[in-house]
Design a protein around this nucleic acid. Structure first.
Ligand code: ZN
Ligand code: ZN
Ligand code: ZN
Ligand code: ZN
Lengths: 132, 132
DNA sequence: TAACACTATGTAATAATATAACATTTACAT
DNA sequence: ATGTAAATGTTATATTATTACATAGTGTTA
């Protein structure tokens, strides 16, 4: 068990919003949604996002510039992330597969670099969209 | 052998620049470098980049918003890309490993989605930087 | 408790990345 | 020559992210 991180006020507001969202959220959409709570500037959002990513509570979907809450309770730090992204409905789900992550970290370890993390994004049509 | 794509004027100018570069190039840096050749607007650059990505001549490094020429002659289309990225010197190299790509496309095929492509980015220290 | 270090916050301005909208031109197949 | 798709040119604007600087809270230790 990792040490439990206490979130600051802004971090908590922003995490709660992302966590409740059914879809990845973009920074300026987050900003718009938290303005009533007193968070008025982009930087306040980006700072909270940076911290939340750092401690693994959220992940950035790089290809979409968007953020989702970690869907994998054991993923306390964002050092090995994998996602399926639907190119039609833009649904994103986090993949949590031990074999896959073992395979990839082994691959990285044997590659000659001093490996610190990876990010993998699969694209295609989700189950719903492919049956349409 | 795939059909050989003929590049248009702007596409060729921009591809040549990226291909000669020793490092990933960002869109506005590309723009700056091709202004003397008559390409004056961001959109001209982005349109060429889009096309070059589509036909697999270059790849976008999503975590860096930068572009590199494909280093894998057999990679005629950007449907399965993998990179090592050095967090110190920002060197990026394309990984071309048949086992890895087989493993990942099999994984995707068996995941329930209608898989179309993936992108994988490893982060860490490259050989040079780790020995410093 | 005072001093210190560290983290977080507030605010304004601006940088960097990317697209929309519209007009025109080129390539090339019928 | 006509139609059509791809590419280009141009202006304006949208979106994403950071710099710089000032202030406030939190916890540790002298
Ligand atoms: Zn996670
Ligand atoms: Zn879908
Ligand atoms: Zn390639
Ligand atoms: Zn390096």
């Amino acid at each position: 068990m990792q040490k439990q991180q206490t979130l600051s006020r802004n971090q908590k507001i922003i995490f709660d919003l992302i966590d409740k969202s059914q879809e990845p959220m973009k920074a300026y959409s987050i900003l718009f949604n938290v303005q009533k709570k007193g968070i008025k500037a982009p930087l306040q959002v980006y700072r909270a996002l940076d911290k939340l990513v750092e401690i693994g509570k959220i992940h950035k979907i790089e290809s979409r510039n968007a953020f989702i809450a970690c869907q994998n309770s054991s993923c306390q730090i964002s050092k090995a992330t994998a996602f399926s992204i639907c190119e039609s409905c833009e649904n994103v789900s986090e993949i949590s597969n031990t074999k896959l992550s073992k395979y990839l970290s082994n691959f990285a370890e044997s590659s000659g670099m001093k490996y610190s993390k990876y990010n993998l994004e699969f694209f295609g049509l989700c189950k719903k969209c492919k049956s349409k």
